[in-house]
Write a protein that binds this DNA or RNA. Structure first.
Lengths: 195, 195
DNA sequence: ATCGTATATGAACAACCGTTCATATAGAAC
DNA sequence: GTTCTATATGAACGGTTGTTCATATACGAT
């Protein structure tokens, strides 16, 4: 038998990526085989190669798409605001955006070491661009006398690390609503950097 | 009777663990083969099984030893102090202890998903014990009116996440000394939780 | 109704996986 | 010097890996 179903190129491609996303997030890139992904999609392993040159490219595509989405979504935020407002918006945006994409987020920082050096550099660049946008806010507020941090670069990484911690414990329907989580984290971030 | 001198068992065992530690940290548990570990030690793969029942046990041992070391070292800190002093000590201890063991730390939270359910539970329990000791400090300070956090459990996880962020960027010999890093983080933590 | 092409199959490839085991060796104990 | 045994070898096990490819099919266009 061949092609047991109809023409599906615009359907199978996304389905492969979705299956790979879930499996990579749950078991890790190295622990997932192309045959497992294929089985998840309901297809033979060979068919995957109509949609990706190889396994590495599949991982890279997932991470790259995610980072592009992140930067594009953040770019849509209104940036004309004082530093404190901008920081509050950043905290809210970061928490909500990442909360909606737990698998992508998990992969994006867990599977960095499984990228080829070239692919790693590209993802790293995108991530740095995102970090820079937060550091710009902190430098802005620092200059205006609103913030008082010893080092904006360290503060940037500390804030992001703290916010990323949400993903390790928050579960929808838990003790706190997303609004409450956002409020709690905003309180801590504000106090950590405010003069 | 067993050989008490000239035996390699007390040499090869640690060497295997050390090799596995470095390789797991760099490439990930699933991506490292027993043959790679053996090669690193300078031995054939079969010889590893004189020192570990299987690959899983090797990973578990590394994580378990690390968590035990962490709890034992923390237990040695003098705990008779007000909450603010205790928190400052915790921050300093956490940063320094983890900085000295980058590979162990990396493995301890990156390879959790590669543990069997039983092994995962055990490691999880040890980690919770460590987190609880920080939460006890925060609750203490909260009761004394020194701290003001909305939720001690969330604050606990947020502080640990923030401190763990150090490991992702700090390199010895860099722009900041370890003392300075500790000071900067302590400032941020203190302000984030202080009333 | 026929054709051409996009899409999937399923077998095959060499390489590698974790683990086992019969065998060899080297050093301590007697 | 002989014996004993902890330790290491190296081949072998069945199974899985990522990837390729000739082949078969189902659909869109003619």
């Amino acid at each position: 038998m061949a092609r047991t179903q109809g023409s599906h190129s615009d359907i199978t491609g996304p389905r492969i990526r979705k299956a790979a996303l879930g499996l990579f997030a749950r078991h890790g890139y190295a622990a997932v085989s192309m045959r497992q992904i294929a089985k998840d999609v309901g297809v033979q392993a060979g068919a995957l190669y109509n949609y990706t040159p190889d396994k590495q490219s599949l991982l890279f595509r997932l991470m790259h798409d995610h980072m592009q989405d992140l930067l594009a979504a953040y770019a849509e935020l209104d940036s004309l605001a004082d530093a404190e407002t901008a920081l509050r918006r950043f905290v809210g945006f970061h928490i909500r955006f990442h909360m909606e994409r737990p698998d992508e987020v998990f992969i994006a920082y867990m599977e960095l070491r499984n990228l080829t050096p070239e692919n790693f550099s590209e993802i790293e660049g995108l991530r740095r661009a995102y970090e820079d946008s937060l550091e710009a806010i902190l430098r802005d507020g620092q200059k205006a006398g609103l913030f008082a941090v010893a080092d904006t670069k360290i503060a940037t990484l500390a804030v992001i690390a703290m916010l990323n911690g949400v993903m390790t414990w928050y579960r929808a329907g838990g003790r706190l609503s997303l609004d409450e989580v956002e409020q709690v984290y905003w309180d801590m971030v504000r106090r950590a950097v405010t003069a």
